[in-house]
Structures are given as structure tokens and as C-alpha cells.
Amino acid sequence: MSDAERAELLAKGWRPVEVWVPDWDSPAFERRMREDSEAINRVDSRSGELDRLAEEVDDLWIDPAP
């Protein structure tokens, strides 16, 4: 972004913000996601809650007829 574009946006009342997102290539992030997924699977295998939820929202993924 050029200085002129930045100045124009600031003049219009916009402000810059910094957004942090996960680094999907990071081994630490991959490890954390694997651990979290395994924990969710362990809990769900006992409760069946994810299966129930998936069945409940299944029809939301079907595109309506044109």
C-alpha cells in the first residue's frame, strides 16, 4: 500500500489494525491441532455429541433447489 493510499484511508476515518493468524506450516501449530483433535475425538467417543450435532445440521449443507 502506498503512502498516498494509506493517507487517503486515514482521512476517510479508517484505521489500520494488526491481525494475527495461525501459521499452518508451524510444527508447533500442527502439534497443537493434533492434540486438540485427539482430545475432541476422545470426548466425543464417549458422548456421541459430535455425531448428534452433525446429523442435526446436515440439511444446512444441502443447496436449495433453484
Score class of each variant (00 low, 15 high):
residue 15 R to G: 02
residue 31 R to Q: 14
residue 45 S to A: 15
residue 49 E to I: 07
residue 38 E to C: 04
residue 51 D to N: 09
residue 48 G to T: 04
residue 24 W to S: 06
residue 43 V to M: 09
residue 51 D to W: 07
residue 54 A to H: 07
residue 55 E to A: 10
residue 37 S to K: 11
residue 48 G to V: 02
residue 7 A to Y: 05
residue 53 L to H: 09
residue 47 S to Y: 04
residue 46 R to H: 12
residue 27 P to H: 12
residue 14 W to C: 01
residue 65 A to S: 11
residue 57 V to W: 07
residue 8 E to Q: 12
residue 50 L to M: 12
residue 6 R to M: 04
residue 56 E to M: 09
residue 8 E to L: 13
residue 33 M to T: 10
residue 38 E to D: 14
residue 20 W to E: 10
residue 44 D to K: 02
residue 27 P to C: 07
residue 21 V to R: 09
residue 17 V to K: 09
residue 60 L to V: 11
residue 17 V to T: 07
residue 46 R to V: 05
residue 66 P to R: 10
residue 20 W to H: 15
residue 31 R to T: 03
residue 39 A to V: 13
residue 51 D to P: 00
residue 32 R to P: 02
residue 40 I to P: 00
residue 34 R to G: 15
residue 58 D to I: 00
residue 58 D to S: 10
residue 48 G to R: 01
residue 41 N to W: 15
residue 57 V to G: 01
residue 57 V to F: 11
residue 61 W to E: 15
residue 6 R to H: 08
residue 34 R to D: 15
residue 14 W to A: 01
residue 25 D to P: 02
residue 12 K to M: 06
residue 26 S to W: 05
residue 54 A to D: 03
residue 25 D to M: 11
residue 36 D to R: 07
residue 27 P to L: 11
residue 63 D to W: 03
residue 55 E to I: 00
residue 23 D to E: 08
residue 9 L to Q: 06
residue 49 E to C: 12
residue 3 D to E: 15
residue 33 M to S: 14
residue 33 M to P: 04
residue 55 E to R: 08
residue 5 E to T: 05
residue 56 E to Y: 12
residue 16 P to T: 08
residue 52 R to A: 12
residue 24 W to V: 02
residue 32 R to E: 10
residue 47 S to E: 06
residue 17 V to A: 06
residue 3 D to F: 10
residue 52 R to E: 00
residue 9 L to G: 01
residue 23 D to M: 02
residue 51 D to V: 11
residue 51 D to A: 14
residue 11 A to V: 05
residue 50 L to F: 04
residue 15 R to Y: 12
residue 61 W to S: 14
residue 11 A to Q: 11
residue 9 L to T: 02
residue 39 A to R: 08
residue 18 E to M: 14
residue 4 A to R: 15
residue 4 A to V: 13
residue 47 S to V: 11
residue 13 G to N: 03
residue 55 E to N: 08
residue 23 D to W: 03
residue 42 R to F: 10
residue 54 A to Q: 05
residue 5 E to N: 09
residue 34 R to T: 15
residue 49 E to M: 14
residue 7 A to P: 02
residue 27 P to V: 03
residue 33 M to W: 08
residue 66 P to H: 03
residue 26 S to P: 06
residue 21 V to C: 10
residue 54 A to S: 08
residue 10 L to A: 12
residue 45 S to T: 01
residue 19 V to C: 04
residue 47 S to D: 04
residue 41 N to G: 07
residue 10 L to V: 10
residue 36 D to F: 13
residue 21 V to K: 03
residue 10 L to E: 06
